[in-house]
């Protein structure tokens, strides 16, 4: 048993694991997008840039203030969430009643500005961020080596995604959120401060992106362009999973990451397009996405 379908098992499992790591980022990012879209009706194109900002904040924290990985994992998402709250209060809140297009254009503009800012400051060549000591090395699973940090990325993303799903679907706070998503006016008439919830939801959604950014920092190069490289795939994930579906974005994110990884094994030429091929097929067969509800 050293081969699967004629592929060495180590290569197979290695790519599957890498796919799962990528899938973890897809899941965390598309979850944030789904939460934001559900509540604010905004297609947040700034998501990739805010993911990048999370990684950059972690890098800046380490190099300017000596803030280590673990504190960054807490502080950088908070910082990104705060940036999000400022964006929501100062700009987004005026767009909710307009067509999706306006929110998309505004957040796209913001993404370009944020990226431009960091490009100007740090160039595009990428900055190193070393793996925290606790996660140096790898586990020997017998059939493959699993780098400890990759295992941590998968575990941490799954935990955060599951916690988010649990809060939204199973708690009274989540019931407020679902209610405000479905019928904001009535929910407000019951005495719930919906504008505040909208603001915090956007802050939380982009904080998820910031969290993914910090997770990514040691795994990939920290670069001002890291967000725009990823965000297009993440949007495809959101479309495939169904706009606004919480569980859909998590499952689809992980699944597509793995499919992408396996494509690298079996037909590497298609590995960067396979997600979009799936998106096209899903749009033809189920326009609302795999987990979305038709309106």
């Amino acid at each position: 048993m050293s081969e699967i379908f004629g592929i060495p098992i180590q290569a197979f499992m290695g790519q599957l694991m890498l796919g799962l790591v990528n899938g973890s980022f897809y899941a965390t990012l598309s979850l944030g997008l789904a939460v934001i879209f559900g509540m604010l009706n905004i297609i947040n194109f700034a998501h990739g840039a805010l993911y990048m900002a999370g990684a950059m904040l972690a890098w800046m924290g380490l190099n300017y203030f000596g803030i280590g990985y673990w504190w960054s994992l807490l502080l950088a998402p908070l910082g990104v969430g705060l940036i999000g709250i400022v964006i929501e209060r100062s700009m987004l809140q005026w767009l909710y009643k307009l067509d999706h297009l306006y929110g998309l254009l505004l957040t796209f503009g913001l993404a370009l500005i944020l990226e431009g800012l960091f490009r100007d400051l740090y160039g595009v060549s990428g900055l190193p961020y070393s793996i925290p000591e606790e996660f140096a090395g790898a586990y020997n699973l017998g059939f493959m080596f699993l780098p400890k940090y990759r295992a941590w990325v998968i575990l941490a993303s799954l935990l955060v995604c599951f916690a988010t799903w649990f809060v939204i679907e199973k708690t009274p706070l989540g019931a407020y959120l679902r209610a405000a998503t479905e019928n904001p006016k009535l929910t407000q008439a019951f005495g719930i401060n919906v504008p505040l919830m909208v603001m915090l939801t956007y802050g939380f959604g982009v904080a998820l992106a910031g969290f993914a950014g910090v997770l990514a920092a040691p795994a990939m190069q920290v670069s001002p362009l890291m967000g725009s490289n990823l965000i297009i795939v993440v949007f495809a994930v959101v479309v495939i999973g169904g706009m606004g579906s919480i569980l859909g974005s998590i499952v689809t994110g992980l699944g597509l990451g793995m499919i992408e990884g396996l494509t690298k094994v079996f037909y590497p030429e298609a590995s960067s397009t396979v997600v979009f091929i799936i998106m096209a097929i899903v749009l033809l067969v189920r326009p609302a996405g795999l987990f979305g509800r038709e309106k």
Binding site: A179, E182, F190, G191
Partner: peptide, 21 residues
């Protein structure tokens, strides 16, 4: 959201039952 806190309850014409709850 502040008006409700003066003791007002509202039952809308379309009933406003949340489908997702």
């Amino acid at each position: 959201h502040k008006i409700a806190h003066l003791g007002v309850g509202y039952c809308p014409e379309e009933r406003g039952i949340y489908a997702s709850l």
